[in-house]
Amino acid sequence: MEYVIETENLSRRFGKVAAVNKLGLRVPRGSVFGFLGPNGAGKTTTIKMLLGLTKPSAGTIRILGQPASRNYLNRIGYLPDVPNFYSWMRGEEFLTFAGQLFSIPPKELKKRREDLLALTGLEGVKTKIGGYSRGMKQRLGLAQALINEPELVFMDEPTSALDPIGRKEVLETISQIAQRCTVFFSTHILTDVERVCDRVGILNRGELVMEETIAGLHQRFGKKALRLVVAGDPGPLAAGLVKKTWAQEVRRENDSIYCTVFDLAAAQRDIPLLVSQCSLGLVRLEPVETTLEDIFVRLVKS
């Protein structure tokens, strides 16, 4: 497998605090890699080190097969968490400026600029960037990150400050560009990761807790679980469930009971009988899929 990002023992210390600690990361070409972590986990510091904006305290970096240098800047794109531009420029002017810095020939640049403005829904916008909304700036940031047709795009929390519509638009655009290049996408919004990523790295307190495909994570850490809703007091039923050998964890959640199990079939067979023995009415019994959030919280806490 070819990797576009490889780090070994990558570390960054700020005084006594290790923002990133001995990070070993491998991002396969063509993937949409979700770089997950709670706030302050070291995601932005890692991205800045990969881009050469921050110097590592220790460790090595290889981007697109090259050791850390400015040589690969021609082949990558970057969208910061809060993209800021020259407010006196118009969006298409900034794209032209960005394209010129990559020495893209004028004819080709014009075509790419028009394509990207269409892709990000900014075509025909004549307002100066100073008058752009947050979502428009994010979309322009995305467009400028793609102007050089990069092989690898870094996106730092691209959706965290957007409203639901803005988020949906940006995620759709990411899905589209993922067909052309590798996307390295840092976030703490797990639903975004589930929506667009095929692989994740989970970072906590500067350390990589896990690196896996989304499917692999579910397979390794997903639990079989059921949710029950009954008519009446669920207390005695919960007490009864705890005694069952197939029950792993039983938890009251408002009016329902959440139960993780070792044997789903046995649980589905026994529960209606148990409900009936407790003189309760069974309103709902449904299997619950373990969410990425559950896995994330468990991994980060452990």
Binding site: L53, N74, P83, G141, Q144
Partner: peptide, 14 residues
Amino acid sequence: NRGVAQLVLTKPVP
């Protein structure tokens, strides 16, 4: 401070 320099200097600009 505003982060504009980040956008410019992650392009091949010395």
